[in-house]
Design a protein around this nucleic acid. Structure first.
Lengths: 196, 196, 196, 196
DNA sequence: ACTCTCGGGACGTCCCGTTCCT
DNA sequence: AGGAACGGGACGTCCCGAGAGT
């Protein structure tokens, strides 16, 4: 689990991609293996926990990459409104470049979790929490509950944009949301007022 | 399709519920039948198109119900900001009452569509379009592209709230988004300005 | 069962055709109904015995038609060898005209009878017996067991020709068999000898 | 395909037996598995092509066994007429010993092929061709087309004997055909004459 | 240490032959 | 006479261990 282990890594990458395309129950282990090019027999060597473990680990990887992306924009150097616009525009471009048919792995998995997968749900929750915290930390007004509430809305709009984006095969829903959220952040800044 | 059709209707209702819980590929026909209490053998009588037909029809039903819900709030009688707050608060309450583990059927299905289900994607797209149009029609400022862009953001935030709501088992993401969107709509009204 | 009953008749004709193409278990009631153009709901009115009854009756019809065909050739007016050649040549032409993909309904059904369908087996047996008797009656040499044995061989070769004909998509197996059987009958006639 | 492979082999044997009893569409995979005693889960490991692959391979095995049987009789050591009689008598005995209810797998499958199974039809055709060639090679008269035509008739009569044999639950149709074909071969030898 | 063959059942979707009730 | 409805089963595929081989 510590070495280069390219099979293992490729399996996780393939899983992440497939999760973004067809969700958890739509993604079979066999498909993951095929797309990864990894040897079939080694799946249960690397992932004794089976499918759930693969999904969990690839979600964690996805989460980490996303968090780093957020921090690239919310770096304290630029106004939060600009960061928001850039975040959503970048997401829009990436979404379109990837074919406009891949969601966010975390969001997609969240939506087809069964009641039994409590561990996965918790993983998704904490990922969203992490994103929210990252964003919230860089919002420029003092009221913390308000910042948190806004950050949650940002994350929600981002996740929702994946849905509308897939439905319309376009990155525009990201761009729309980015603009309105940026405007909301700006209008918040001078007045320091929290919406009722 | 004209008579009592209770089996057929119950199948569609069960399907809608299950789609909201576990998505399309997570939902088996057998599970739908079991939950509906309908007889197993009649499925392919009522739905010769198989699973796809069941999903399509139950999405349509879901879409129609949602559109009516939107129109109950956006009725021209009340300010758009109020309508938005009420819409999201109502959604939050409903979401929590239902167990905080059911997404929006349309959004959930959108996220695990395979490339082959073009017809279903189109159905989801047009549903979202309909919702967007309904909202946009009742926004109080003149610039139409801006209204449309805002309406899309509303829908995106709504769909995203389902995701965050499931992850956190709480309706708060709806309430948060409702407040910020309402504020954005209000701040738009006096100035008649479109965010750049 | 006595009236014109075109639905009933068309069902039987369609069944016969399908039995010749794909055998008994390969032929579904629904397919029969579709090809016949008869109304779906009346199948079990006309044939309360279900599939077995349809098959049985259409085999009987087939048997009767075939017997009449045999009698057209074995009419006592022409030498048996000529009759044999004409019979097989006619069968070859008919086989090719029909697409070279239809067997004999009786033979086809005989080969996929399950142990349970004793009644159908008996029906097939008696049909073959009838054909054998018709042929045997017109063979020109005195020894009756020998005539019977030859007649059985004729029927066997005819049924086998359907198999080889389907495999090769050609009527030639019929023509080949017809010639050799005719020759055998001729060589029998002068010497009045039975092969040991 | 190289190791012990007892499951795989047993599946093929069971399939062959069942094909001989109830044809292709009458034979379910589940039945094959049950009769073979092989584990259910391995079927699609050994035969990823599903039923068609099982059928194809078991037909090939059947074909090979039959060809070897033919060559045991047509060995150039004995007169063709004797070989024919022995072939059909042996077939008769085997048929009766097996319960007089099993056809030839190739012939049975040929008769319920659907139009779609072109590959299987081709397999059946080439098997029959192989048998024909084996027989034809050992016929003692010079005219090659005539030998071929006779060999085809032999194969047809053999296949037909399975049908009549099943219908009458007796091996006699084989014995009858064997005698007449042997006589035909003998009468051919001295005169070197081909039937017109 | 790692890979693969093989084994294992449960379930996926779809369709079958049949019967109920108009 | 006839359309709607009914279960049971068809074939195929799922996710996953256990063992043998390298």
């Amino acid at each position: 689990v510590s070495r280069d282990d390219s099979s293992r890594t490729r399996l996780l990458l393939a899983a992440e991609e497939l999760l973004r395309e067809t969700g958890m129950s739509g993604t079979g282990i066999k498909t993951i293996v095929e797309r990864s090019g990894a040897p079939i027999g080694s799946v249960y060597h690397h992932f004794p926990g089976g499918k759930n473990q693969i999904v969990a680990e690839s979600l964690q990887a996805h989460a980490e990459k996303s968090r780093r992306l957020f921090e690239r924009f919310f770096d304290g150097m630029r106004p939060a409104a600009d960061a928001l616009r850039m975040l959503f525009d970048t997401a829009a471009d990436g979404f379109e470049r990837a074919g406009a048919n891949k969601g966010c792995a975390i969001g997609t998995v969240t939506l087809d979790l069964s009641e039994a997968d409590e561990a996965l749900r918790e993983l998704c929750r904490s990922t969203f929490d992490g994103w929210t915290a990252t964003i919230e930390r860089h919002l420029p007004w003092p009221d913390e509950p308000s910042r948190r509430s806004f950050a949650r809305t940002v994350v929600a709009a981002l996740e929702g944009a994946f849905i509308l984006g897939r439905a319309t095969r376009s990155g525009d829903p990201f761009r729309d949301a980015g603009r309105w959220l940026a405007a909301a952040a700006e209008s918040q800044q001078p007045k320091r007022r929290k919406p009722r």
